[in-house]
């Protein structure tokens, strides 16, 4: 129980409890519904919801490419934030050189950000 990993054991237990709880919340009402007789599916009820009209077209249609762009930009900036975390906790130890290196990195990132901005990747109209 002395290792670092032991500190995470309560989280693992919590994960188990949370999974059991939420699964119970999903599956128990299905059982209750069958026991109380509220479970009465029919084709109209099981059809997809479209404000009362019969559904037309496939719902998995094409969608705006900007959502992909946002996802790609997110990956870049989130990865970059992941580089910043260890730097942030050790700033006192790495001194001025460490700080300056990260600032150079941030400037490069800012250049990329400005490029994406100028290219219109952040525009929604």
């Amino acid at each position: 129980m002395a290792s670092v990993a032991a500190g995470y054991l309560p989280i693992l237990l919590f994960l188990g409890v949370a999974l059991v709880l939420s699964s119970a919340f999903v599956f128990l009402p299905m059982l209750v519904g069958r026991l109380t007789g509220t479970h009465q599916p029919n084709p109209e009820k099981l059809a997809e919801y479209e404000c009362g009209f019969p559904a037309f077209e496939d719902s998995r249609a094409q969608f705006d490419v900007r959502f992909y762009l946002i996802a790609i930009l997110f990956i870049i900036f989130d990865l970059e934030a992941a580089f910043l975390y260890p730097w942030a906790v050790s700033l006192g130890g790495i001194g001025f050189v460490g700080w300056l290196s990260m600032m150079i990195f941030l400037v490069e990132l800012a250049v990329g950000f400005i490029y994406a901005w100028k290219k219109g990747a952040l525009e929604w109209e």
């Binding site: 949370a18 479970h39 009820k45 997809e48």
Partner: peptide, 28 residues
Amino acid sequence: LQETIIPAAANKGLFLIAPIITFTVALI
């Protein structure tokens, strides 16, 4: 006490897993 409706066109496994993920994450 309501009926659980799983739409006929839905991917049933994923459809049921999604709320479990949401709630589990909100708890842990």
